[in-house]
């Protein structure tokens, strides 16, 4: 798997002004691999996945996605964004559009799909996230968990090869976390390549092929989940895990 990575980060560095957020990040994700990134807040984990579809620009090092290197060339960015779906912590659904319009927006304008076909695809994905009956409501009328499932369906409508999740359950009430995680587990079962920033360790144990622990802009540890949870090598990882699982 590692011989043919679909995402490759090679000595990636990034600064916000004086602040060094990412320090020599090396990461390779193979096709179909599920990577879960965790770490304390401010460790740079969100920044890593935001660099992968270039919502943030890295300043040094190389990022290659599906054989295309990320440069400031607009076409290469567009090509990559079409292949990479993203789910945000705060859902970011478009409040002025109905659920189905949210789902068909990109297929219509980016992929130039006929309306009917786009709507059929959208309904299929809404059924998969189990809320087809909400298609003609506005995002403001849905619960947080439903909104996040719509957001996942919206990303899937472009039929991406890779899905990025940026703390998808952090903004949700506890009773809604499960419904979103269920969708994500199902997605993982279908062989989607996934990079996921989350603190849901139960989810990580079930689906992750490898765990990444970050702190202060550095990848401290990368290991399969069994090793990672049973015998973390670094003291920092141990500390973090005890805090997160402790309560």
């Amino acid at each position: 798997m590692a011989n043919d990575p679909v995402i490759l980060l090679d000595k990636v560095n990034k600064w916000y002004g004086e602040f060094h957020v990412l320090k020599d990040i090396d990461l390779a994700v193979g096709k179909g691999e599920k990577v879960v990134i965790c770490g304390p807040s401010g460790s740079g984990k969100s920044t890593v996945i935001r660099c992968i579809n270039r919502l943030e620009e890295h300043q040094r090092g190389r990022i290659v996605v599906d054989g295309v290197e990320l440069t400031s060339d607009i076409r290469s960015i567009d090509a990559i964004r079409r292949k990479v779906g993203m789910v945000f912590q705060s859902f970011n659904l478009f409040p002025h559009l109905t659920v189905i319009e949210n789902l068909t927006l990109a297929p219509l304008w980016v992929k130039k799909t006929p309306l009917k076909q786009a709507q059929e695809t959208a309904m299929r994905y809404l059924e998969r996230v189990k809320i087809p009956e909400q298609a003609h409501k506005y995002p403001g009328q849905l619960s947080g968990g439903q909104q996040q499932r719509v957001a996942i369906a919206r990303a899937l409508c472009l039929k991406p090869d890779i899905m990025l999740f940026d703390e998808p359950t952090s903004a949700l009430d506890p009773e809604m976390i499960k419904e979103v995680l269920d969708v994500m587990v199902e997605l993982a079962g279908e062989g989607m390549t996934m990079v996921c920033v989350t603190h849901e360790m139960g989810f990580a144990r079930t689906v992750a092929d490898s765990m990444v622990f970050m702190a202060e802009g550095v990848i401290v540890e990368k290991a399969p989940p069994k090793e990672f949870f049973a015998a973390p090598k670094s003291e920092r990882t141990r500390q973090f895990l005890s805090q997160i699982i402790g309560h």
């Binding site: 964004r81 990479v84 478009f94 990109a106 990303a155 472009l158």
Partner: peptide, 10 residues
């Protein structure tokens, strides 16, 4: 909103 739209490839 901008980020979500860009991430969709618009």
């Amino acid at each position: 909103q901008t980020e979500a739209a860009l991430a969709l490839g618009l």
